[in-house]
Design a protein around this nucleic acid. Structure first.
Length: 644
RNA sequence: GCCGCCUUGGCUCAGUUGGUAGAGCGGCUGAUUCGUAAUCAGCAGAUCGUCAGUUCAAAUCUGACAGGCGGCUCCA
């Protein structure tokens, strides 16, 4: 039969393998770099026969995304084989490839530790060196179950029992056989640049009621150079860790023993926060929001009425005074609804948009806390939009616009997802449909790419989530836009329509940056501590050459401060180079050097954060330079934010 | 909460087989008066996370607890 191999038509004998076919159609070099074959959407082992009716085959190269995926999946098998040799009693479970690597979950007699890595890696190298072939076999379910039962591999048996097909595929690698869909590398010889990275506990099937397994994470690359580069990248990313930079730049800290998961903002960090908050308030007012604020404590009865007490009690803080029980708010919606409900509203008032930088407390489990990214007390840039069903889509569009504008202002890339109705949910089908449609249509109208996260919505309504990544590529949710039909019902929110009748409004909960703490944490990592000039706690530092220039430096600093710029002066008795270095490490955008020449001519010598010296400038020039720098990001957004 | 690891001056880290603590940075003082990423010297600063236990003797060994780190589950 004739098939096309990447554009070349070749004649293939019946019973030929994918490798045979590719060898005919590819250059020798390309063939050698191939680790699997592609037929349409399917990936096949090179050793697999060319499928019946197949008319075209492509090569999957080792260093392509798909090739790396296969490499890492195969590396997981190599690791499992090594573990089986060293720890015969360790039962195996699953071991997939993931972004940047792979893992394998084991149920060992004792959990693995990093100290086991050396031995496992050595064994993995032996297996790689032996270039053991991966051999695929199709067997009946019964046969597979019998096979794994004999080996005592109960987890595998459990998985196989749930597979619907009549047959399953097994892969042999040396003496280790694993249930696996494949495809795999032709042999283990390709797994030469692999490294084990960490151990972790992981629940069997991700359910915390199940047994905790011992997971080993590792990674593998096409060659040693790529692996070294990746490991270097990880090291580099750790330098950007907001927890490290927060301490080094004196932005914030934690006092774990007295308030785990709660931030202590130092002056510089608080300044960044304050500037950000001021900007957010102005931007919200500009976009038709009204600012409100509710109390931190609300009577327990209210939380019972809202359903939070029933569903969320474990995560709430409670207090009691003079026999009255209060709950510390974990969210801001209730106060906003009470404000809405304080008067009978007309349809003419809608949409109502209440915004609050609301401080909330959530008692997160101790193991999940993570610097600023996961805390127990945080501030949401929260708002609740109460509108008619007709207004819903337009409201959502403007919220998404705000998300888009703010995230591009900071230069973040983000991923949007629409979470649809979960199995456990309340509300009518029409309401769900109306809201889900509104969310999707809004995203489509703005031409923003998004994914659908099936059944991932809140129990009271669908939502749009926006996720951004930290320096180590971990994803964190920031924006959330949630439609809610429950609370307006429970709190009997109404508006008087044109017809004089009372109607039920729709409510949208939305946060754009999400939590200010989390957002600032990610921002720190994003800019490696070098905040954009409009947010930098110090925009410029005057640095003297000798103490003869102290008075002049102080005058320069005072003058610029009086213009509203954030400036200080380093008058320490140190060499210029020392103070320049200090300013550089504090990531101050502008260093203004003053010495004899500047004293005489009445200006400063400007050095930029990046290291460039742009030379002599008058103070007026410096002022407009810094202002222009502040306004630059806003021009791109068409926000025209002024710094005066 | 669960699994593994970790906790020594403000920070980063040494501390060999148990014999009651060291360095660099930072801070302070003095000398130096210097032109774009570290001038020199001196001084101060630690009941080694907490509480028990083993021991003649514990930073070091054991246990519990509290935090932290990496994951899991959860979540903004």
């Amino acid at each position: 039969m004739n098939i096309t191999i990447e554009g070349n038509s070749v004649a293939v004998e019946a019973g030929a393998t994918c490798a045979d076919a590719l060898a005919l159609g590819l250059s020798g070099k390309r063939f050698k770099a191939s680790v699997a074959a592609r037929a349409g959407d399917a990936l096949l082992d090179l050793s697999a026969p060319v499928p019946d009716g197949c008319t075209a085959l492509g090569a999957v190269l080792l260093d392509s995304d798909e090739g790396l995926d296969i490499l890492r999946h195969s590396a997981a098998h190599v690791m499992a084989t090594a573990v089986q040799r060293l720890f015969p009693k360790a039962r195996v479970t699953i071991g997939p490839a993931i972004d940047n690597g792979f893992y394998y979950d084991f149920d060992p007699p004792r959990p693995f530790t990093q100290d086991d890595f050396a031995a496992i890696e050595t064994e993995m190298r032996h297996i790689a060196k032996a270039a053991e072939p991966f051999v695929r076999r199709e067997v009946s379910k019964e046969e597979a179950i019998r096979f794994f039962e004999e080996k005592g591999e109960s987890y595998k048996v459990e998985i196989i029992r749930e597979i619907e097909a009549d047959t399953v595929s097994l892969y042999d690698l040396a003496e280790f056989t694993d249930l696996c869909r494949g495809p795999h590398l032709p042999n283990s010889g390709f797994v030469k640049a692999a490294k084990l990275l960490s151990v972790a506990g992981a629940y069997w099937r991700g359910d915390e009621k199940n047994k905790m397994l011992s997971r080993i994470y590792g990674t593998a690359f096409a060659d040693e150079a790529a692996l070294t580069k990746y490991l270097h990248h990880i090291e580099e990313a750790k330098r950007r860790d907001h927890r490290k930079l927060g301490r080094e730049l004196d932005l914030f800290d934690f006092h774990e023993e007295v308030a785990p998961g709660m931030v202590f903002w130092h002056p510089k960090g608080m300044l960044v926060r304050t500037i950000l908050e001021d900007f957010l308030r102005k931007e919200h007012l500009k976009r038709g929001y009204e600012l409100v604020q509710g109390p931190q404590l609300l009577r327990r009865e209210l939380w019972e009425k809202s359903g939070h007490y029933a569903n969320y009690r474990e995560n709430m803080y409670f207090t009691e005074i003079e026999g009255d029980a209060y709950g510390v708010k974990p969210m801001n919606c209730l106060a906003h609804m009470l404000i809405y409900g304080s008067a009978l509203r007309s349809y003419r008032e809608l949409p109502v948009r209440y915004a609050e930088l609301g401080v909330v407390h959530r008692h997160e489990k101790s193991g999940v806390l993570h610097g600023l990214l996961r805390v127990r007390q945080f501030t949401q840039d929260d708002a609740h939009i109460i509108c008619t069903p007709d207004q819903l889509e337009d409201e959502i569009i403007s919220v998404i616009r705000l998300v888009r504008d703010l995230f591009s202002l900071f230069g973040f890339s983000y991923k949007l997802g629409v979470a649809t109705r979960p199995d456990k949910s309340i509300g009518s089908d029409e309401a769900w449909e109306l809201a889900t449609d509104a969310l999707i249509k809004a995203l489509e109208k703005l031409n923003l790419p998004f994914v659908i996260n099936e059944k991932d919505g809140a129990f009271y309504g669908p939502k749009i989530d926006c996720r951004v990544t930290d320096s180590l590529d971990r994803e964190w949710q920031c924006s959330t836009i949630q439609c809610d039909f429950t609370l307006p019902e429970r709190f009997d929110l109404v508006y008087v329509g044109q017809d004089g009748e009372r109607h039920r409004p729709v409510m949208v909960h939305r946060a754009i940056l999400g939590s200010l703490e989390r957002f600032i944490g990610i921002l720190i990592e994003h800019c490696a501590g070098a905040f954009p000039t409009w947010l930098a706690p110090l925009q410029a530092r005057v640095v003297t050459v000798t103490e003869n220039h102290d008075r002049y430096a102080q005058k320069v600093s005072d003058t610029l401060r009086s213009k509203g710029l954030r400036v200080d002066a380093d008058l320490r008795n140190e060499k210029l180079g020392y103070k320049v270095r200090a300013a550089q490490m504090e990531k101050i955008p502008y260093v203004l050097v003053v010495g004899e020449k500047e004293l005489e001519s009445g200006g400063v010598n400007v050095r930029l954060r990046g290291g460039d010296t742009i030379g002599f400038k008058t103070l007026a020039e410096v002022e407009s330079l810094i202002r222009a720098d502040c306004e630059e990001p806003f021009k791109q957004e068409g926000m025209n934010y002024r710094f005066s």
